[in-house]
Each structure stands twice: as C-alpha cells, then as structure tokens.
C-alpha cells in the first residue's frame, strides 16, 4: 500500500473556506472522481468547514487519499475545539439550526458523501470525518 500523506489546512476566516474548496477540488480530480462526485465532496467540504468556522470558532481540515478493499477515495476530517454538540441526532435533522442558517450543513453533507462519522460532546469540540469513494 502506498504511503499516504495527510495534508492540513487551518480554517480561521471566510477566505480559508475558499482554500479548502479549491484543495478538495484538486485532490478529488487527481484521484479521478467523476465531475458529479467531485462537486458533491467539494460542496460537503464547504458546508462542514463553514460549520466549523461558525459554531466551532474555526479549526483544522485534514485531506487524505485513502485505499480500502481495492477502492480509492478522498477522506476529509474537520476538527474543532469549540463548544461541541449536545444532541447529535437532532443536529443531524434537516432544517435544525442554532445559527440562523438553513440547517442543511450536517444532514445535507451526509447525503453528499459515502461515509460519514461524527464525534462530539459538550465542551469537547467536534470532529467530522467523511469519505467519497471513486
């Protein structure tokens, strides 16, 4: 298995969201995702990075090319040390928001990726990991 390198980007302001989107787009194209799947993962990344900025006070994004069972994919991790989420189930519901948005960030991005995992607890920050397979 080829050694995978993990790239990182800090998300601290709105301009960083653009950088995250561009980096995801480039990596998704390199991996060979179809145009539709590229658009899906870039959009999911935009939603999750914005969530991190808005609710978690900023954080870090990790980009990693992964291989599993002969499949190639792009894995993204969004990690903040903000207040965390009290009720994950409720936060994953379409239309639920505490920030005046549309409440599609978490639930919507889950539909745009193949694998979605979220870890959070009050006071412990939030980590969301997503994968889009080729």
């Amino acid at each position: 298995m080829p050694a995978s390198t993990i790239e990182r980007l800090q998300v601290a302001c709105e301009e960083d969201l653009v950088r995250v989107r561009q980096r995801v787009r480039t990596m998704a194209a390199e991996i060979g995702l179809s145009l539709v799947n590229q658009t899906k993962i870039v959009t999911a990344a935009s939603e999750l990075a914005r969530n991190m900025l808005k609710y978690g006070g900023g954080g870090e994004t990790e980009f990693e090319r992964v291989e599993r069972n002969g499949l190639i994919g792009l894995q993204l991790t969004f990690r903040d040390s903000g207040p965390g989420i009290e009720n994950i189930e409720m936060a994953m519901t379409d239309g639920y928001t505490t920030g005046g948005g549309m409440g599609l960030g978490l639930s919507g991005s889950k539909r745009l990726v193949n694998d979605f995992a979220i870890q959070s607890a009050p006071g412990q920050g939030t980590t969301v990991t997503v994968i889009r397979w080729k």
Partner: peptide
Amino acid sequence: MQPAVAITLVELGL
C-alpha cells in the same frame, strides 16, 4: 446551472 451543481444541490436538500 451546471448539471453536477444541480444534482448536488438537490441531494443537499435545496
């Protein structure tokens, strides 16, 4: 609107 963008928006729920 591009097809890929339209598909993604619909999937997103918008």
